[in-house]
């Protein structure tokens, strides 16, 4: 990891890390997030949702935002508390307009092999917003009565 910060204030866990496109590093981060969610009694469904959304956001950052340039990094920031997890994923690209991505669930697109990452993030997280200029995605998962 190129740089990392982590810490706790009361029951809040905060993590900021610069990622390179390295599977072991991403897996380590996912394990850490899962551990923090479990420590706050978020259920398996929440853990699955958050893991999937983080995976898609990071891979999108490297593949599309950074256009696969291995010298570029992705910034990962998260805050976890008893009520929610907030994740920001920032790539080094120029940003994009997510509204321009075709709906992969349209019948005409069902057999197209790509373009499902953003819709999965939106389906599994409570909020997903791309912040100007479009290279920062902010995702929030709020605890529900069942999670």
């Amino acid at each position: 990891m190129n740089s990392t910060e982590s810490g706790r204030s009361s029951d809040s866990f905060v993590r900021k890390v610069e990622l390179s496109f390295d599977r072991a590093q991403i897996e380590g981060l996912q394990t850490e997030v899962a551990r923090e969610l479990s420590a706050r009694s978020f259920d398996d469904g929440a853990a699955f949702a958050v893991r999937l959304a983080i995976e898609e956001a990071i891979v999108n950052g490297f593949r599309h935002g950074n256009a696969g340039d291995p010298t570029k990094t992705v910034q990962f920031e998260c805050e976890i508390n008893q009520d929610m997890i907030r994740v920001d994923v920032v790539d080094q690209g120029p940003g994009f307009n997510p509204e321009g991505v075709p709906d992969p669930t349209d019948e005409a697109n069902l057999e197209v092999p790509s373009g499902r990452g953003i819709m999965l993030m939106r389906a599994y997280m409570t909020e997903v917003d791309y912040l100007p200029p479009g290279n920062r995605v902010r995702m929030v998962y709020e605890r529900t009565a069942s999670s």
């Binding site: 699955f48 893991r51 999937l52 995976e55 898609e56 891979v59 092999p113 790509s114 373009g115 499902r116 990452g117 999965l120």
Partner: peptide, 8 residues
């Protein structure tokens, strides 16, 4: 776990 790339 599988990703959207695996679905692809």
């Amino acid at each position: 776990h599988l990703s959207s790339a695996a679905l692809g």
